[in-house]
């Protein structure tokens, strides 16, 4: 199952009908369009690449051309039910700020990132080579990824930041972290929210 398919499956399972959804780094709008068609969400995209903005406008999706690393100050608080951040966390300069902005404008964040502690990556490192895998398809010299994240690291940071983080399973359930997740998951799939909020 490709990441896109896996991601879309999880989004469909987790995002309720008619939700207000912000997609950070929305690309050409595939996810928003799918959610709009299947879940009638009210979608909004942000992307830094003009061709992606053009693609979204062509598809009738409202979009903002901007850099999520600069913050989401254009967006008012609690504007959205869900903020999506797919395969982008490892590329932002200020992940804590991005997460906190997500949880300012939306009640929940849904996040995916390549898990650097996946056993395949560990094998690469044991042999002394930077991992190049389907989840991390770049060489060290051309990767846009500026951060190395593991599922355990992510959980630890969320705890420090008073952020509730739950793994999204393929079966549609949220379940607590198992010790095997960090070893066996190629990607981290999380739902985050402010601690103290009803889940």
């Amino acid at each position: 199952m490709s990441l896109d398919t896996a991601m879309f499956d999880r989004l469909l399972q987790h995002i309720p009908q008619g939700a207000r959804v912000l997609d950070l780094g929305c690309g050409n709008g595939d996810a928003l369009l799918m959610l709009q068609e299947k879940k009638q969400v009210l979608g909004y995209g942000i992307d830094i690449e003009l061709p992606n903005i053009q693609a979204c406008i062509k598809r009738g999706l409202p979009v903002y051309h901007g850099d999520i690393d600069e913050g989401l100050q254009e967006l008012g608080s609690n504007r959205f039910d869900y903020a999506l951040l797919s395969q982008t966390l490892q590329q932002v300069r200020n992940p804590k700020r991005v997460l906190s902005e997500m949880l300012r404008v939306a009640q929940y964040g849904l996040i995916t990132f390549p898990n650097f502690a996946h056993w395949k990556n560990r094998l690469h490192l044991i042999t002394g080579i930077t991992p190049v895998t389907p989840a991390l398809p770049y060489q060290w010299y051309n990767t846009p990824n500026i951060r190395v994240i593991t599922i355990s690291d992510f959980i630890k940071m969320c705890q420090e930041e008073q952020i509730e983080a739950t793994i999204l399973r393929e079966n549609g359930h949220f379940t607590p972290l198992k010790w095997t997740d960090n070893l066996l998951s190629e990607y981290g799939f999380f739902r985050i929210s402010r601690k103290g909020q009803p889940l």
């Binding site: 903005i53 979204c56 979009v63 051309h65 254009e74 967006l75 008012g76 504007r79």
Partner: peptide, 10 residues
């Protein structure tokens, strides 16, 4: 955006 208008920006 704050007014919840349909707005795109490039």
């Amino acid at each position: 955006m704050k007014l919840n208008k349909w707005v795109s920006y490039a």
